[in-house]
Write a protein that binds this DNA or RNA. Structure first.
Lengths: 205, 205
DNA sequence: TTCGCGGCTGACACTGAGTATCAAGTTAGA
DNA sequence: TCTAACTTGATACTCAGTGTCAGCCGCGAA
């Protein structure tokens, strides 16, 4: 799915990786992430511990490698509609692309998010990935901007804030068992930036 | 400094902890975080590996324990000036309290931030701490709000965004060797939320 | 002063993540 | 078919982090 494999070896590697991840994921959901060891996973998958470790550098990657393309998805989506929209709209739409990419199997994603949520190590590693995406996204957001002033603080803050929205929205969506509308959740989250920031978050008007 | 010690035992423990951290910190800066083992630290500090591990649960905590009170500092600062200000102003001021708390020794903080920046494991762990702070801060931000609607998304997003500002601002400040004005940096960062989010971040006007 | 209690310490053993190496088997491609 | 490159499993290793245990020290009570 990510970086279409070319040679037969690449195809094989990709398929094996997917299968190992599938088996491992069941184990994690069954027993809990921290309780499962690489030895368990290897035995369950029918390969040696060495081989399993060759496909996934760390235990966290066994779960989180599906998020790897998200950074590029967001960055590319920012390019796509470089229309006359403001930063927040562009970021909101880019995030919509990201969640669309992630939501292929609703139930699977809900399960993954649940597993991540209750495993600090997974949260931490996911945050690391997010931090890796940020510079690239900031660059994309800025490169279509006329003013190229040296300091990119504003763009940096906005991208960081938008990425926070992503996890908050996914958390809510996961809590609703995947039934909530992700577009509406994104709108509700981004309202934090457009609504007047007074104390009445839903003013009686 | 944090939770004033009461008994002699507490005083002793606190002092030993500080001394161990001091010795360890030098080692980290000298050799690099990942290159130093608990055995090294123990030898350098003149205690056994067991004892060192009893004072710090993980290697990351040896560096990051100084950030532990920051969550409470921010939450308390939100209470302090619950004046008629909007969310963003309150959060900005709370963050100012946080940086004021952190900046006791400029050079030391710059060094710590540098060490964290170039050590992914430290970044990740710091993000975990941040995630622990968030619910408490969100609650404080909301409890002074008249409307107590069930969904706290808006407040949640704003707090998350503000905390991102904290790290961005500290990163900039650290890059300037602690010479930049933190108040101005905070203002510049929070401008991302007040400035019209059009493509011209510094309109020619 | 002496006794006993609780906490601190160092020593040791253990599990598990992650790295590195090597010999044997397998596959791609000329 | 032959070979070079790749894959695999076995093994050994370092180090983080956990748990246990016996000895030590300080402190308060008798």
């Amino acid at each position: 799915m990510s970086a279409a494999p070319v040679g037969t070896r690449e195809i094989s590697r990709h398929a094996v990786r997917a299968e190992l991840a599938r088996v491992a994921f069941n184990r994690f959901c069954l027993t809990g992430f921290n309780q499962v060891t690489f030895a368990d996973l290897a035995k369950a998958a029918g390969v040696s511990r060495s081989t399993f470790l060759r496909y996934f550098g760390t235990k966290e990657d066994v779960v989180l490698f599906v998020f790897d393309p998200v950074g590029d998805v967001i960055a590319d989506a920012l390019d796509a509609d470089r229309a006359d929209q403001d930063d927040w709209s562009r970021l909101r739409n880019a995030l919509e692309s990201a969640v669309t990419f992630l939501v292929r199997d609703v139930q699977e994603l809900v399960t993954i998010l649940g597993l991540i949520e209750q495993t600090p190590a997974l949260c931490a590693r996911l945050r690391e990935k997010q931090a890796e995406w940020r510079p690239r996204i900031v660059a994309r957001l800025q490169e279509t901007t006329s003013s190229t002033d040296g300091s990119s603080v504003i763009a940096d803050v906005r991208v960081a804030a938008a990425l926070e929205c992503l996890w908050i929205v996914l958390g809510q969506w996961s809590a609703s068992d995947g039934e909530a509308d992700l577009g509406e959740l994104l709108d509700a989250a981004f309202a934090a930036f457009s609504t007047p920031a007074c104390r009445e978050t839903d003013a009686p008007s």
